[in-house]
């Protein structure tokens, strides 16, 4: 049975994509750096410390995460990934968005033509419910439907 969660839209938009779930913090630099540096079209996650998503493709997925962690290059990495068309389909944060992720998605929104919808504050239960591979639907009002 489908379950819905209501969050806050940080970057407006909607979408439908399979979930890729990181229960721990998403380390943006560690996840993206190899893929960006060497042109991996599938953008496989390179963060060895994140067994949930290590070596899994980040593109075309609904990336579900609590927040991002790690280096303050994080926002710049999101911006570059956005400009190169290598961002997830959309992002679902269970917690309020962190400063690095916010900077990245906002810079992509202001400075490029590629926009990735982002919703935050979906709550801890969201990450407890959603599983990698579940189909997610994001509505423009910030509602995420699982299943």
């Amino acid at each position: 049975m489908a379950k819905t969660f209501k969050g806050r839209m940080v970057v407006p938009g909607s979408g439908r994509a399979p979930a890729l779930v990181s229960h721990g913090g998403f380390n943006t630099l560690a996840s993206y750096q190899s893929a960006l540096m060497f042109g991996d079209k599938a953008v496989k996650c390179g963060d060895q410390n994140n067994p949930d998503i290590y070596k899994k493709s980040l593109v075309n997925a609904a990336l579900c995460l609590p927040q991002t962690i790690g280096s303050t290059t994080g926002g710049m990495v999101f911006y570059a990934a956005g400009a190169l068309g290598k961002l997830p389909a959309f992002m679902c944060f269970s917690k309020p968005i962190d400063s690095l992720a916010a900077a990245g998605v906002i810079m992509a929104d202001v400075w490029t033509e590629n926009h990735m919808p982002v919703v935050d504050s979906l709550g801890d239960e969201f990450l407890e419910t959603v599983k990698t591979g579940d189909m997610l639907t994001l509505s423009e009002d910030g509602t995420v439907t699982v299943g």
């Binding site: 790690g70 280096s71 303050t72 290059t73 994080g74 926002g75 710049m76 999101f78 911006y79 962190d98 400063s99 690095l100 900077a103 990245g104 810079m107």
Partner: peptide, 24 residues
């Protein structure tokens, strides 16, 4: 920006800085 420098500036020097991203 630079996570370790921001952490040091805030904590050890008592300056005020968010964990800004590169470019910001």
């Amino acid at each position: 920006a630079e996570s370790s420098a921001v952490s040091y500036a805030n904590s050890v020097l008592g300056a005020r800085c968010n964990r800004n991203s590169g470019m910001i």
